[in-house]
Design a protein around this nucleic acid. Structure first.
Lengths: 111, 111
DNA sequence: TTGCGTTATACTTTTAAAAATATAACGAAA
DNA sequence: TTTCGTTATATTTTTAAAAGTATAACGCAA
């Protein structure tokens, strides 16, 4: 581009039935759930409320036909949450798409 | 991708000082201003209020250092608005970026 | 010099999103 | 059978964004 110092930026996401089901923030949440085994811990790490995190997880699981996250309450530790193999597969593929997109932004963002 | 029928979608925009200054909606507004010579007409076409359109134009002009839109009030027709050559140049380049981005989405969106 | 349609701007109201609060359900372990 | 920390969910409150309303300023043309 020619004149002032501006930067190309953007976002990508996956849609099902015209509705956004997975974007960069939700993927980060899923990753943290996977690592910590807890929705609550993931929410704390991302400085959002448990409710908000749970709503997101719920929305994701509903959007896709199969759940990406399985959770149980009660028991040792109070409860647990984990990614299904399908969930792991989906976020892996999304992250690859994101890599390509970052590359796109870099290549085309130069003036 | 492997399982359900989902679609890759996204948006790109230009930022100046970490702030969004031009995206797909604003470009459409600018184009309509250019064609009609009127902020009000452009707003009507896009079913937004004049105020909202004017705020957007104002924000765009402030974000870039040079104005993309020049407007005058009074006179024949009540007033007029038009794109500067710089404005025309910017939206032209942004539209090219958008074309490339659409291509990116198509190429990578296939499962 | 009055009327006209637009630009320009302030102010208020409405709406929607986000955040906060509260509470029930659960199951392992002590 | 009680405690514990979490999941699960409803309800309320707060906040921010959007929309709406009102009005002044302007300059050409009649």
């Amino acid at each position: 581009m020619s004149i002032p110092p501006f930067k190309l930026n953007g976002r990508i996401w996956l849609e099902i039935d015209e509705e956004k089901v997975l974007g960069h923030g939700r993927v980060e949440l899923l990753e943290r759930i996977h690592e910590s085994g807890s929705i609550r811990q993931a929410a704390l790490q991302m400085k959002m409320s448990y409710k908000q995190a749970w709503d997101l997880v719920n929305h994701i699981n509903n959007g896709f036909k199969q759940p990406l996250v399985i959770s149980k309450r009660g028991g040792k530790g109070g409860g647990i949450a984990l990614l299904t193999p399908f969930g792991q597969e989906v976020i892996e593929e999304f992250k690859e798409l994101q890599q390509k997109f970052f590359k796109f932004l870099e290549e085309n963002g130069k003036k």
